[in-house]
Each structure stands twice: as C-alpha cells, then as structure tokens.
Write a protein that binds this DNA or RNA. Sequence first.
DNA 1: CGGCAAGTTGAGCCAGGTCAACTCCGGTGG
DNA 2: CCACCGGAGTTGACCTGGCTCAACTTGCCG
Lengths: 243, 243
Amino acid sequence: MFFDTENFCAKLTEEELIALNAGSSLVTIKRDQAIPEETRKHHPIVAISSGVLSLQHMLHDGRKTIAAILMRGDILDLRSSSKTQLGSLIALNTVTLCRLSPTVFDASIANNPRARTLAWDNITNQTFRAISHAADLAKKQALEKLASFIFEIRNHDTRTISKDHVQIPIRRRDLADYLGMQPETVSRCFKDLAGRGIIQVSDLSAVRILDAPLLRRIANGDRGPLKTTRADGSCFRILAAGA
Amino acid sequence: MFFDTENFCAKLTEEELIALNAGSSLVTIKRDQAIPEETRKHHPIVAISSGVLSLQHMLHDGRKTIAAILMRGDILDLRSSSKTQLGSLIALNTVTLCRLSPTVFDASIANNPRARTLAWDNITNQTFRAISHAADLAKKQALEKLASFIFEIRNHDTRTISKDHVQIPIRRRDLADYLGMQPETVSRCFKDLAGRGIIQVSDLSAVRILDAPLLRRIANGDRGPLKTTRADGSCFRILAAGA
DNA sequence: CGGCAAGTTGAGCCAGGTCAACTCCGGTGG
DNA sequence: CCACCGGAGTTGACCTGGCTCAACTTGCCG
C-alpha cells in the first residue's frame, strides 16, 4: 500500500503496448554490469521489472557510494539528468529492465490517467525515499542506519510474505556503500543486533525480525534514556528490556 | 538551465488560475514556523514561491536533521506521504507558498502540457537532488560536503547574478543539520577553505568562490595524490597549487 | 576439492563530535 | 547614546565511533 509495486509497463493500454513494442524493449543486466551510456542515450526512460539497480557515485579517489537503489516498479527518467553528474547505473543482482521510448512514455502520461497517476506516485515516492535515506545518512549512527535499512527493505515490497522475514537483496559490501559505512562495520552491527536478540540472521540474505518495536526505536535514534558509558553493559539490558 | 525556476502557479492557463483561486491561496511563513498539520491535510500540494523550506526529521533524542531543502519553484505533493513518516516542514527564512487544490493540480497536469512538463521536470530534479545529497552525506568528509553544498546552492538558482558569488540562504546551524555535521565543524570548514584562499567569506550569508576548479575537486573527493599524514602541511600546498 | 571473492574478527588510530568558554551582533529600553 | 541581553557563531581541548589495515574464515562456483 505504500506504493503500487506493479510495473509501469503492465499498466499501459493495449494500443500503448503496441506502440511501446515498436520503440522499446526488455533487457536483462547481470550483477556488476552497468547500463551503458549508449543505452541511456537512446532509452532515457526505464522501468525496473525485477532485481535491484543502483545509482553509484565514484569519488575519484576510490571511495564508492551507492546513492540510491531502485527496485521493481521504479521508473527512471534520465532525460533531464544529462547535465547532472548522475553517476553510473549498476545492477546489484540480475535486473530486468523495461526500456521505454520517450514518445510512448509521454503519450501515456498525457492520455492514460492510470499510467499518469502510477508514474507520478512512483516518482513522488522515490523522492521521499531518497530524502528519507538522506536523513538516515545525515545524523544516524551505524547501528541506527542498519535498523532503518531493514525497515526500508521491508516496507519497499508489499508482496513480502511475512512481516518478520526480510529478504536482503544485496551484498554486504553494497549495503555498506549504500549506508555510507564500511563492510566491517556492517558486519559488526548485524552481529550486535543478532547478539541482542533483536534480529536473527540465518542466511546472509535473510533476516528475521524478532523484536520489531525495539528495532524501530533503534532506527528512530532512541538510544534509550541513558547515554552513559556502559561500563557494565546496562545500556544493552535496558534496550533489550522490550524483548 | 538545470531546471526551470519559474513557479508552477505562474505557468497555469488563465482559466486554471481562476479555478486555482477558488481552492487555493498564497501564504507566508516566517522563520522557524512549521506548516501546520491542518494545512497539510487541506492543501496537500504546495509550490514554493520564495524562501527556503526545510523538511526536518527529529531523532527523538534531540538530534535534528534537515533531510531536504526546498526552494523557489519546487513542488511538494504530500498526498501519498501521509503514511510515510515524512517529518515537519519548517521555514528556514520567510517562505511564500502557493497552496494548490489537488483537484486543480490534477486537472492542470492532465490538460496543460506545459504544466505537466514543468511538474514532471521539477519532481524528477528533486529526486536527483535528493539522491545527490544522499551521496554527499554517505562517504564525503566534512570539507567535501561543504564544498558540494556551495555548488548545490550555486546551481540551484539560475538567476544568480554572478557565478562566483553565492548567496547562502540559511543559517550556519541549519546548514550543519542539512550536511549532517555540527555547527562547530561547519565553522571550521569555512575557515579552512577561506584560509587556503579557495573562497572568501565576507558576510555570513555571502561567499565568493575564488578557485572554482579546486573547490570542485574538493567537492568531488579528490584529495590530491597524497593521503599521507600531512606533518608538514604538504597536502595543503599541493591542493593549493591550482590557485 | 581447489581457488577466489565475500564476509568476519581484531588492534590501533583519527576525523569529527562534544562540551565549555568566548566573541559577535542586532534589538531594546533607560 | 550606551548598557544590556540573548541567540548565533567561533575557538579550543578532549574523547569516541567507526575507519583502516591485516589476518583469518566462510561460502560459492567450476
């Protein structure tokens, strides 16, 4: 309900789909592959059918940042971003893209209210997600960022089977680049949360939330009433009291 | 050229403006005032005519984050964000808002191609700006973030008189909250840049860029060829060589 | 089963957060 | 006109969360 996860392509009318087929195409991109500049030029509008696409910035001295992750249903309009140093679009796992012809896209937006609403809702939500992510990065600590991320993933795909079971679709290293931290720190934070019994990490890509309220509080930066030096680990105990 | 800074309201057709006047209004908000929840409910769509509006998150233990700043021309559609914990909308200086009736807005988007394009371009650019800001926050150091911010402000308003003279429209403390750092650190970074002759800070709100290329390199995280401990300040000298 | 990438663990260190004192500046009233 | 005040900004000293580097373990694919 957060937003419609249906693919934009799937919402077009029949005649639009016919026009679409003329100027568009479905492509698959494997992990670590980028959408080539050439493709971006000829198909500046893409909708993601499956997989996770990342928007990466390279800091020229090697530091890599994943500025945003795009998932099923997200629409990317790269027309106005030619001048902006947007960065590279790199697949974090196998990604299926629906490449749209600008002409067809614009026509759909103009004439098909469902398509228009869908596109507008998606782009609006992308903005809010990006803003929310920026807020996470700005002032939160590592543990809080990770907690936020778990909820972000959980909320993103409404088709999630269980509310407690979150499927992490990307590697640890990519997660680190997305959250602005180091893989080592990500690892330590997972261990910390698991050690407190807040989450359970079975597989590297599978997390089960055991104490959602507490995880939420951590994500919201509620460090509990105390900020004192936990010489005796009292901070842990108080935080874990909600379990 | 980055995007049209014209106000959305100004691009409507005459009849749309008439309809607009029926259900919308222009309001002024003074610094530190929030857009009340009540207003957000009845006028979920606003366009900014002047001033700087911020979207703030409060981390419940006092840490404040400015997740995004909205300026002249930006459109905010809050309809889909009711569930999302969006945060508060707080003016960073005197803000003039054009409150739009959703009905009129949707009709304009549907029927007025200019309005549609304008709105779409704006929201798209907001997304890219937010993503870019997230990238800044993720891996950049304090000095690099500040350098980025100076360019962000310069690029935002194309009406800027001089390319070298940047008007910083917000207080230092707000700047700190936006960049995810402390006011003290912001102060130190300004001093550092000024000390190296890269910028000149006359007024608290006026910055003159003296060495744009070098500032750009700093913003892009190019720390120069060396990352060595600058026991002798050699790092400074090499970075300053471009001046 | 071998080889390599991904992830984890540990030890040490530094950028920037924190706290406290100080300066600066605009507004206000005597 | 100046003394006073309060909020914003600055400066300095100290401290810590997370980065760094290196060694180790795990998991995946041929």
